[in-house]
Amino acid sequence: MTTSKRHLVIDVAAVSLVLAGFAGALLAPTDRLQGDLQRLMYVHVPSAWLAYLSFAVTLVASVAWLRTRRDRWDELAVSSVEVGVFFTALTLTTGSLWGKPVWGVWWTWDPRLVTTALLFLVYLGYLGLRRGIVDPDVRARRSAILGIIAFVQIPIVHMSVVWWRTLHQPPTVLKPGQPSMDPGMLGVLLLNVVAFTVTYAALVRRRVEIARAEAAVEDALLSDDSPLAGDAVTAPTHVEVLDV
């Protein structure tokens, strides 16, 4: 299979899985207390999972870059952060929409909420840092270091609901023992997690392609054989007279 065909396969898989997950979310049983509001979980939980996953991929790619200095690790790291930042924002948004009717507030001083918001901000800083550095090698090195340091927050975000007594409920699925959830709901949730993960893979692949194209443009601009802007202008004749 050619590269573009493989891309097509993963894109089609992502779209159809997301549609299936959406249908499942509508058909899943209604929660005893929250009613239809609980259906937000089918977006909220997979988004949060993708936030963890993408920043973990960035961590691995950053370590790999520092060890091997291969460009593709840097491309993977930045692609994963971009997708991760989007899904962190989606987690915060859906969480806020879910919180207003259920908890009674859009936002509250709660360790899980605050740590997730900080996660979002730090990775925005990562993207800002990359924009500020021109040299590809320096950019890759510094962002790899930040990609490793920033990951310290992930375990804190996940464990915050266990370590502290918070408003946000503790984990339902990612905990020791049986998930405390109806099997039908759990099935739909897992379907959505798979759908989101495939979407993540599709998005990251596309983003890596863009990163490669960007690197190619940068290379072309830096190399000497490209025509200079001034070449289009003919030199004035008096230069010849002066014999410079």
């Binding site: 918001a117 900080l118 901000l121 730090v122 800083g125 800002g128 840092l129 500020g132 340091i149 927050q153």
Partner: peptide, 19 residues
């Protein structure tokens, strides 16, 4: 991390404040 970048006056607070 942000040495000799243009936007460092805003980048440093952005990285430092949350952490």
């Amino acid at each position: 991390l942000t040495a000799s970048t243009r936007s460092r006056t805003s980048l440093v607070p952005l990285i430092v404040t949350p952490l």
